[in-house]
């Protein structure tokens, strides 16, 4: 009993704060999306109108595209970068420091940097002009505010490759330096040692990191704000626009969008928790 009181005192404030704010926010959003608060005509009409709106569906598809492509590219490059950084080469320390420094840079700064680098009047366009490839800014391919969201994806890749790389390096450190040599002395080639020994043990960490990246790229606001096209716009922009619409009738729809995104997040949460929380039973895989 005493031990229980102690645990309650230690945990209570944090759990109450996070639980109150998170569950309060989600609960209110749910009630408002169902038009239960203020009580109008309760029901799923907000969801129906959201899911019937071509604009919202296009935004949903765009955000899926952004999150999926960013996550896949970042995961692949991070795997390569982690394998690179665990080996010795001149300048390795400097690169490792740069990778860590990137963590500290806010996404909005990265987005503006990418904008000034690859927009039609950006540094790359100027280089293309100097090389005689284009004569005017409009001839440079549109990489920002473009339908394929290339600038947004580039920003996420730039920010998240270091993030996943550091997760993988931390995991490699706990694995120790000898598993590779063990595999090699059992006859595995360099590639086989990676494919059959290192990669399977990195996959859970890689997937857990990728789930966080996907969630972030799906739900972040400021990167598409700087680099996104007007139509379709990324889902977070769309949700915020409905929310701040002068027509208050749009609000339930905004809350419906946020609940739909939360449902997607619940799936990601289940995946992430399965990968990082200690399991009680043992899995067979």
């Amino acid at each position: 009993m005493r031990e229980r009181t102690r645990l309650l005192l230690l945990l209570g404030p944090a759990v109450a704060l996070v639980g109150g704010l998170v569950l309060g926010a989600l609960g209110l959003a749910l009630l408002r999306s169902l038009r239960l608060l203020p009580l109008e005509e309760p029901g799923l009409s907000a969801y129906a109108s959201v899911l019937a709106s071509p604009g919202v569906l296009a935004s949903l598809a765009l955000s899926f595209w952004i999150a999926t492509v960013s996550t896949l590219i970042a995961a692949g490059l991070a795997l390569a970068a982690a394998m690179l950084l665990r080996q010795a080469f001149p300048g390795r320390r400097l690169v490792a420091v740069l990778v860590q420094l990137n963590l500290t840079i806010p996404h909005v700064v990265g987005a503006i940097g990418i904008l000034y680098l690859i927009s039609q009047s950006g540094s790359f366009a100027r280089l293309a002009h100097a090389a005689g490839l284009i004569a005017a800014p409009g001839e440079f391919p549109a990489l920002t505010h473009d339908p394929w969201a290339i600038g947004i994806i580039l920003t996420y890749v730039w920010k998240e490759v270091p993030f996943i790389t550091l997760i993988l390096l931390a995991k490699l450190q706990t694995l120790g330096p000898d598993l590779g040599p063990v595999a090699r002395s059992l006859g595995a080639t360099r590639w086989q040692a990676f494919r059959f020994v290192l990669l399977p043990q990195l996959l859970p960490a890689l997937a857990a990191g990728a789930a966080l990246v996907f969630a972030f790229a799906f739900g972040a606001y400021e990167v598409p704000l700087v680099l996104g096209a007007h139509a379709p716009e990324a889902l977070p922009l769309r949700a915020w626009r409905s929310f701040t619409d002068v027509d208050l009738a749009a609000r339930p729809e905004a809350f419906a969008i946020s609940i739909l995104i939360a449902a997607l997040g619940a799936g990601l949460l289940a995946l992430h928790a399965r990968l990082i929380l200690p399991r009680r039973g043992r899995d067979a895989g």
Binding site: P181, R184, S185
Partner: peptide, 8 residues
Amino acid sequence: PPERRGVA
């Protein structure tokens, strides 16, 4: 390389 030495 280690894997081609016949050494375990």
